[in-house]
Simulated scan of single mutants.
Amino acid sequence: MSPPETCASERRAQEVYEVYLAHIDGCAPCQAEEDCVEVARIRRDLRAARAAVRESPALRAARAEARK
């Protein structure tokens, strides 16, 4: 990924996290720690978005540079 794509993936991860928090705040089953199909989907999306950020070449290059 190029740096602009990395920024886009970071924005996407942040957007999904905000959706997750809003859902938790407004969902009675989630607040009662009961099963919720919608939050399961949002968590999958969040994991995928975070993985896209972690796997970006720009981030890997920055980590490698920091280890030197």
Rank of each mutant, 00 (worst) to 15 (best):
M1Y: 07
M1G: 13
M1P: 07
P3K: 03
P3W: 03
P3G: 05
P3F: 10
P4I: 05
E5H: 05
T6K: 12
C7P: 00
A8K: 15
S9Q: 14
E10G: 13
R12K: 09
R12Y: 09
A13W: 00
E15Y: 07
E15Q: 01
E15K: 12
E15G: 04
V16N: 05
V16A: 06
Y17M: 10
Y17V: 04
E18G: 06
E18V: 03
V19R: 13
Y20F: 14
L21R: 14
L21H: 09
A22Q: 09
H23P: 04
I24S: 11
D25L: 12
G26C: 12
G26T: 15
C27N: 12
C27D: 08
C27L: 07
C27V: 06
C30M: 08
C30K: 01
C30I: 06
C30A: 12
Q31H: 09
Q31V: 02
Q31S: 08
E33T: 14
E33K: 12
E33P: 00
E34K: 15
E34A: 11
C36I: 09
C36T: 09
V37D: 10
V37H: 11
V39F: 05
V39M: 05
V39L: 15
A40M: 02
R41S: 06
I42H: 01
I42Q: 03
I42T: 02
R44C: 08
R44V: 04
R47Q: 04
R50W: 06
A51D: 08
A51P: 00
A52E: 08
V53Y: 01
R54N: 13
R54I: 00
E55P: 00
S56V: 00
S56W: 00
P57Y: 00
A58R: 01
A58I: 04
L59W: 01
R60V: 07
A61P: 01
A61W: 08
A62C: 02
R63Q: 13
A64F: 05
E65Y: 05
E65N: 04
A66D: 10
R67S: 03
R67Q: 10
K68M: 13
